[in-house]
Design a protein around this nucleic acid. Sequence first.
DNA 1: AATATATGCGTTTTT
DNA 2: CGCATATATT
Length: 759
Amino acid sequence: MVDPFALADHPQPELPTAAPPAFTCLDGLNEAQREAVEATDGPVLVLAGAGTGKTRVLTARLAHILSTGRARPWQILAVTFTNKAAREMRERVASILNTSVEGWWVGTFHAIGARMLRQNAERLGLRREFTILDVDDQLRLMKQLLEAANIDAKRSPAKLFLALIGRWKDRGLTPAQVTAAEGAAAGDGVALKLYAAYQERLKLLNACDFGDLLLHNLTLFREDEECLAKYQRQFRYLLVDEYQDTNVAQYLWLRALAQQHHNICCVGDDDQSIYSWRGAEVGNILRFERDFPGAKVIRLELNYRSTPHILAAASGLIAHNKSRLGKTLWTPLAEGERVTVRGAWDGEDEARSVCEEIEDLRKAGHALNSMAILVRAGFQTREFEERLVTIGMPYRMVGGVRFYERQEIRDAIAYFRVVVQPDDDLAFERILNVPKRGLGTASLRSLHMLARRDGRSLVAAATALVATDELRPQARAAVSRLINDLARWHGQLDTLAHPEVARLVLEESGYVEMWQRDRSPDAAGRLENLKELVGALAEFDSMAGFLEHVSLVMDNDEAAADDKVTLMTVHAAKGLEFETVFLPGWEEGIFPNQRALEEGGGAALEEERRLAYVGLTRARKRAIVSYAARRLVYGSWQSANISRFVTEMPNENVTHYAPRGLVTGRPARHGGLGLGQDFGLAAGSRQGAPRWSRPPLLEGKAERVAARPRPQQDFTPGQRVFHQKFGYGEVKAVDGETLTIAFEKAGTKTVIYSFVKAA
DNA sequence: AATATATGCGTTTTT
DNA sequence: CGCATATATT
């Protein structure tokens, strides 16, 4: 089989020095941008305000370092958060220098982390072909752990523990590094125990989750100085995009790598830090000068995107935040329109007015592609979708279910994973009974038990199990057929083209047929998606290479070919720009949202404000903020107060329209109070007595799931034994791990070693 | 294994 | 209110 990792990391000494003259890289840059490009040595922080040409600087800097011969491509490490940004950087630099990008260390934190990890996997107790888990896998694994530990998954859902573990990983903490106090505090100490167990299981599965891709690197750096030193020497120049979004683990990782050459350049904007809830630390960017002594700070403040009114409104708004480094954005553009603020009676009214304005703009000759509706939260899109559909306005929803997150795609990928790597238990579990093969929880439990006892994979356990009479004949046949199929497909990877193998897998497994028989309206679409998936496979060298890609590249670049209005969250809009931006729902409780208001402390509110700032600064020419006086939420009407963010924009940059008689800013008579009461009542009435659910069954499960040492005794013919299903019997023959036993009641059966006890 | 019923939840999600 | 998930039922 082709090894996709074999060639990945060798330096390519042939790559370019023959580059165009250096001035190409500096052409057309303003003074600050040029400074940021030319300050190659030592730590540099580039504070790049919204729309100040950050990407240009980043690519120009990379090109500059290469074309002046300061470093070879593999001596530069350039990290981003999104694949899109990484791709863009690679393509632009490649085009400036007119060269190929093979072997470059330009990629997302996760992709680069995975690459380093593959190079050193054995040192961390992993094999190089470790798999990268997706969210479904993580959840399945955690649920198993909860069951084994006899924890009520209802009171403490798997998601919650995964979130806690994720946050620990964001902070660069292995289970051993979490302080005792903090460990004891999180879920009564259960979370930390689960974290340790989870990591154990991952190692056994030869798998990593996303957090591990960096966390393991940190462990590696700590435990293997030589390895760290090697990377430190290799990377003469480090480039970091969106530095305000880095978490502690990423910060530690970067700091470790920069220790040799100290040439680290971080680009970011503290005012656009909107991912703290994902572990991002604004503190990283605020502390840069202390973390990297002698750092040069360059501010990019010349904005080429928005008109003065929009820029001033956004600047005035963000000035209300306390913890920021501070920038003064200005623009050479002509004055333009003020920011519009529009009041509406209710949510429907608001959607109508926004859509009317879109209609008007279109009639005036504006492309729908130049307009976007940016909402705070997903549920707000519904009203707009309804309205847009009603009036027949074409629109594009960004951020729904992504291609690789669709059920059929994940199922298919799970098949591919098991075919490439039979030991991938989580993938195997996913496909075991998809399509239905009559293999339910009972069969799975048998497999699990055997695998766990003998410390081997499910496929290996299944192979052993089908040689016996342990399973019901029907189940036995089904498992037998599946593992035979898997083995055959695995073998075909050597003889057939991998897209062909993929096609065979999907056909012969019955998976395609399953959807063909499905009567639901989206079945046809799913079949289309499967075709597309097989098509996409052809673009990779091997199936394993493809799987590496899909686990790291979850983005889904929609072809923006047709003219449509874009509808998405403000978060999703970061980094984008539109001529006209609609910002609906600027009400207290929605934007800023309720949780941020309740959280107190002010940090959450400041992040909401940054989010509002991001929203406003997406607009080139027109920003239309709106709010509704009342809104239907969960079936009941709620009055709302106008968002503080509206009033925080300077008056002289805003034009406020509201229908005559619209009352806003009303004290909380029906408003906030009503909401609180509603929730309070609901919560109270739902606090019924806990139901004590079937203790015997739970105990029984836990008993059986718990790992037990493999029986170390040997069996000899003639010996009297006990089998949990077939009862007492006498051993007739021993063949490796299978025994033939004449049972007193059940007759002669072939059974597996580990299910038999000496009587 | 498929279907009915109960229950709980409701912010953002770059990989 | 409406959706997704978990559990009960046949």
